[in-house]
Design a binder for these strands. Structure first.
Lengths: 188, 188
DNA sequence: GTCTATAATCTGATAGAC
DNA sequence: GTCTATCAGATTATAGAC
């Protein structure tokens, strides 16, 4: 029985989905377990039938967030290669900055993870390697090597992280456009 | 009397210095006012003679952190222009990632600020514009325009932020080197 | 201005009925 | 597995003596 989709696993997924959205929007300490469970239409006490601690929930959220991230979305849409432009513009857009779409955990969870335990960092590292792999293998050769993929990842994540901390929408648009325009120059 | 350096202002500076280091290392919610005041050799209750709330302390820390940041350091050392290589290598180094030097607030406070009020974002935005200004006016023309400066800032901040969330030192070194190597290509 | 002491609140985690 | 109820600890902010 490889996938015994029990009701418990469905509930666990619901909790994770709520956790991903809330943690990404407000950060680890600005979200209580009560809020997560309420969002998942359960009560506080039921939490510990699914996770051993808030920290474990957060670590699992780092993995879970990859499923609905912007890049996962365009990967589902297109079966073949992703164009470089499509990748960059999907990531560096105001909808992603404002989290009108489910966010990339590498941008949303970065600073929180750096303040947490090694399990969280391991999850983050794993997801980061996954991004590098996608960039290199699904871009039809437009991203030639690991070094290019790494610098592109830093540019994209940095662009979104900084944008979220600015208070001037015009500067945000300017920054996103600058990153989009300059990204291709990293590929040479 | 332009600078009446009273003892109160000295104490305020001491509190800010402790706050910058602790907030940068562990984030807003992982640092208590008690810890900040203890680090500044005072007791908890004395805090409110200097700041009206923890949030105000944090906002002021964003500004205060610029004084000892890596780029402020090399600007004090050299009177003339900074070389592009010096800027990039000073920022994207493991000592900065591990905060063995006083960190740049744009990297250390980014995600926290995005979860806070508009005053914090205003402080962050102001510091960000300051970085763009330094990059453009102090690089001897090696950073030709605002768009180049913006993309470079995103690359540098992103490189440090991601590095702090990874658990594999080798990958961190690889990432920093990738960002350093590729940075110059953004300047064309 | 700085101290000690405490109020008021929040939240992670546990216990036990159903 | 989910619920209600509660414990235990931490933390921001305040009060009042010095």
């Amino acid at each position: 029985m490889p996938w015994p989709t029990t009701r418990k696993q469905e509930t666990r997924k619901k909790i994770l989905k709520s956790a991903v959205r809330l943690f990404a929007q407000r950060g680890f300490h600005n979200v209580s377990l009560g809020e997560v469970m309420e969002d998942a239409k359960l009560t506080h006490g039921a939490f510990y039938a699914h996770f051993s601690s808030k920290q474990e929930l957060y670590n699992q959220s780092v993995y879970a967030a990859t499923e609905d991230s912007p890049l996962a979305g365009i990967m589902r849409e297109s079966e073949g290669d992703l164009s470089f432009n499509k990748i960059v513009k999907t990531y560096l857009c105001s909808e992603h900055v404002e989290q009108k779409v489910s966010p990339c955990p590498l941008a949303a969870f970065a600073t929180d993870v750096s303040n947490q335990n090694d399990d969280a960092k391991q999850a983050y590292s794993h997801v980061f390697e996954g991004l590098l792999d996608i960039l290199q293998t699904r871009s039809g050769g437009e991203i030639p090597d690991r070094q290019s993929a790494m610098s592109l990842a830093a540019l994209m994540i940095g662009g979104v992280v900084v944008s979220r901390a600015l208070n001037d929408e015009e500067v945000v648009d300017e920054l996103l456009e600058a990153c989009i325009t300059k990204a291709s120059q990293l590929m040479k």
